[in-house]
């Protein structure tokens, strides 16, 4: 449904997007994951034909995207990273305004507006002006303005920043619900948990390049880490590290601030072997846990740095 080919965008000397390739299918919740400044917003602005780009090709619904492609624009809903609402209008008026730019017919617009208000849970605030809303409520208004017209494609640029966990979950559920009703969703975020929770396919961006793309299972299978064992509150000598490193299937060991991290490729009994070794050497330790790899590990292994904010 969306095809981005070899997209290059420069801001002067800075290359914000470096030969970006993305393909998004109808019915997906597609996650764009990347740290600050990785080019997520830039990619979306190009996709919406708002930014000039230096090279590349963008197709939406099988048509080349241009600013005056109003038929295509009509089917897209956008929730921008920065809140974009009129301070001079109330919550309801704002939603009604944006909805009215997409759909005609007063009755239909009214119904859609009410539905959007319910969707984000702003029923108690309909008469308020945006400046009277808290940051989180404002975000929710921003979302409502973007999705009120029930578009076929919804683009959300970090919509849940500053929203409390409860409302965030509600919004994420809502997004899944929209998706079930048939909307394709592009969701950018630097919260990997969110992306992992709702996205069916994920592209990881860094420095304007797509460094990995696929379902989360595919992404995780791309890396060596199959299991990550963390041992907290442990006191041991540096000389013990090579021993642990030499245990079967272990390929990376770090010891910092009394915390031991052991990365192993996927195999059975990794944890037992590590614990046995610690017992053998009579090393005391606190909490121990073992995790499956996260997207953070994927990012870490490919770029050598953490994804965390």
């Amino acid at each position: 449904m969306i095809k981005i080919e070899n997209l290059v965008k420069r801001y002067g000397p800075l290359v914000a997007l470096d030969h970006l390739n993305l393909e998004i299918e109808e019915g997906e919740i597609f996650g764009l994951l990347g740290p600050n400044g990785s080019g997520k917003t830039t990619a979306i602005s190009c996709l919406l034909a708002l930014l000039k780009y230096d090279k590349g090709n963008i197709e939406v619904f099988g048509k080349t995207m241009t600013p005056d492609n109003y038929e295509v624009k009509k089917q897209i809903g956008v929730v921008l990273q920065n809140v974009a609402v009129f301070d001079e209008m109330s919550v309801r008026e704002n939603i009604d305004y944006f909805c009215g730019l997409y759909v005609s017919g007063k009755e239909k617009r009214k119904a859609l507006t009410e539905e959007a208000i319910r969707f984000v849970g702003l029923e108690d605030y309909t008469k308020m002006r945006p400046r009277q809303l808290s940051g989180g409520l404002l975000r929710r208004l921003n979302i409502a303005c973007g999705i009120a017209h029930q578009p076929r494609l919804i683009i959300m640029d970090e919509p849940t920043v500053a929203v409390d966990p409860q409302s965030r979950n509600k919004i994420l559920e809502g997004i899944k619900e929209l998706n079930r009703k048939g909307a394709t969703i592009i969701y950018t975020s630097h919260y990997m948990e969110e992306v992992e929770q709702i996205c069916s396919r994920i592209a990881i961006l860094d420095h304007g390049r797509c460094i990995a793309q696929g379902t989360k299972e595919e992404l995780k299978s791309m890396i060596k880490t199959g299991e990550k064992i963390t041992v907290e509150g442990i006191l041991m000598e540096e000389e013990n590290l090579p021993d642990i490193r030499n245990l079967p299937h272990v390929f990376d060991v770090t010891y910092e601030n009394q915390e031991l991290t052991v990365r192993c490729s996927g195999a059975k009994h990794n944890l037992v072997r590590v614990l046995n070794y610690l017992q053998e050497k009579d090393i005391a330790f606190g909490r121990v846990f073992s995790e499956l790899p996260t997207l953070n590990d994927v990012f870490l292994e490919i770029t050598g740095k953490e994804l965390r904010d």
């Binding site: 919406l48 038929e71 920065n82 009129f86």
Partner: peptide, 15 residues
């Protein structure tokens, strides 16, 4: 100049 203007230019309103 403003986010609001961005938001408005990506709606299907004829420029």
């Amino acid at each position: 100049l403003s986010t609001l203007a961005i938001r408005r230019s990506i709606t299907p309103t004829h420029r």
